[in-house]
C-alpha cells in the first residue's frame, strides 16, 4: 500500500512537467479563445467584456440584424476547406504510400539518404519554399516551360493563383508528415508475415489487403490525421499560392484577427475548426476502442 502511494507520488511528479506544459501552452490559450469567442468585438481589436452570441450565429448564417443578411458563406468556406484538406490527405497518401514501400526496400545507405532528402525541407523556411513554387507555377515558370518544351501545351496553363496551385503547395508542405509515420510503420512490418501469407497461398493482392494493410494502418491513420489537421487550418499556402481566389477557413481567421479587427469572431471560427477536428478524432478513437474490444 505504501509502495503504491509512493509510486503514485512518483508518477505525479513525473507527469507534472507534461501537465504543466499542456496547461500553459494548450489549455490556457484554448480557454482564452473559448472565452473570447463569446464576447463582443472591441472597436479597435481586442474584446469588450460583455456576452455576445452573434459570433457563432454568424458562422451558421444568421444575420446579426444590424448589418448583415442571412448567408451561409462561412459554412461554405468551412466545407470547402474540409474538401481541400481531404484532397491534400488523399494526394499525400497516394504519393507517400508507394514511395515509403519502395524506400523501405532499399539498402540502408540509400534508405538513409532518401529519408534525409524527405526531411531536408524542414531546414528551410516554409515561406521560402513556397516562393519557389511561385517561380515554378507562374505563366513563364518552369512547369509551363517544361510542358511547352515537351509539346504538351501551346499556351501557358493558368496554374498560379488557382485551387490546383494551393493543392500542389499543401501536398508539397505536408508530404513529410504523411511519409514519416507510414514509413516507420512499414519499417516495423515483419517481412516474415508477408512471406507467411504468400506461403499459405494468398496472392500478392490478398497479402497486401489482409496482412500488410492492417499492419501499416496505424501509420496511415496517424499520417492522415497529421496532414488533415494542419491542412484544414492552413492559411499560408492559400495566401501565397491562391491569392484571394482560394479561401480556406484559416484565411478567414487571419482576416478576422487582422483586417476586420474582430477577435471574437476569429476566435469563434477557430473554435469551430477545433470542434471539427475533435469530432473526427473522437470518431477515430471510438472506432479503435471498438475494434480493440471486439478482439
Amino acid at each position: 500500500m505504501r509502495a503504491l502511494s509512493r509510486e503514485t507520488t512518483a508518477l505525479t511528479l513525473l507527469l507534472a512537467p507534461v501537465t504543466l506544459f499542456l496547461a500553459i501552452f494548450f489549455l490556457i490559450p484554448l480557454g482564452i479563445m473559448a472565452v473570447y469567442s463569446l464576447l463582443e468585438p472591441g472597436l479597435y481589436g481586442g474584446v469588450e467584456w460583455s456576452f455576445y452570441h452573434w459570433n457563432y450565429g454568424r458562422i451558421l448564417g444568421w444575420a446579426d440584424g444590424f448589418i448583415e443578411e442571412f448567408d451561409i458563406v462561412y459554412l461554405q468556406v468551412l466545407g470547402r476547406s474540409m474538401g481541400l484538406a481531404a484532397l491534400t490527405v488523399i494526394s499525400t497518401l497516394l504519393i507517400c504510400f508507394p514511395v515509403a514501400f519502395w524506400i523501405s526496400r532499399l539498402p540502408a545507405k540509400q534508405k538513409n539518404f532518401f529519408i534525409f532528402l524527405i526531411t531536408l525541407p524542414f531546414f528551410t523556411s516554409m515561406i521560402v519554399r513556397l516562393y519557389a513554387w511561385v517561380l515554378i507555377l507562374r505563366d513563364s515558370g518552369f512547369a509551363n516551360q517544361l510542358l511547352e518544351w515537351l509539346g504538351l501545351i501551346s499556351e501557358p496553363l493558368d496554374l498560379m493563383f488557382t485551387g490546383t496551385a494551393v493543392i500542389i503547395g499543401m501536398v508539397y508542405i505536408f508530404i513529410p508528415f504523411m511519409f514519416l509515420p507510414i514509413y516507420s510503420s512499414i519499417e516495423k512490418l515483419d517481412m516474415s508475415l508477408v512471406q507467411a501469407s504468400q506461403d499459405l497461398g494468398a496472392s500478392p493482392f490478398t497479402t497486401f489487403r489482409r496482412i500488410v494493410l492492417p499492419s501499416v494502418m496505424p501509420g496511415v491513420i496517424a499520417g492522415c490525421i497529421l496532414v488533415f489537421i494542419p491542412s484544414l487550418g492552413n492559411f499560408v499556402v492559400p495566401d501565397l499560392l491562391g491569392g484571394a481566389r482560394v479561401v480556406m477557413i484559416g484565411n478567414l481567421v487571419e482576416q478576422q484577427f487582422l483586417y476586420a479587427r474582430n477577435w471574437p469572431f476569429g476566435a469563434a471560427l477557430s473554435m469551430v475548426i477545433i470542434a471539427v477536428m475533435m469530432l473526427l478524432m473522437a470518431v477515430y478513437l471510438f472506432r479503435v476502442v471498438k475494434a480493440d474490444s471486439n478482439r
Binding site: 512471406q195 507467411a196 506461403d199
Partner: peptide
Amino acid sequence: HRRPVNTVFQSYALF
C-alpha cells in the same frame, strides 16, 4: 503462393 508447400517459420510469423 501457388506452391503446394507450407512453412513453419523460425519466428512463427503468426498474424
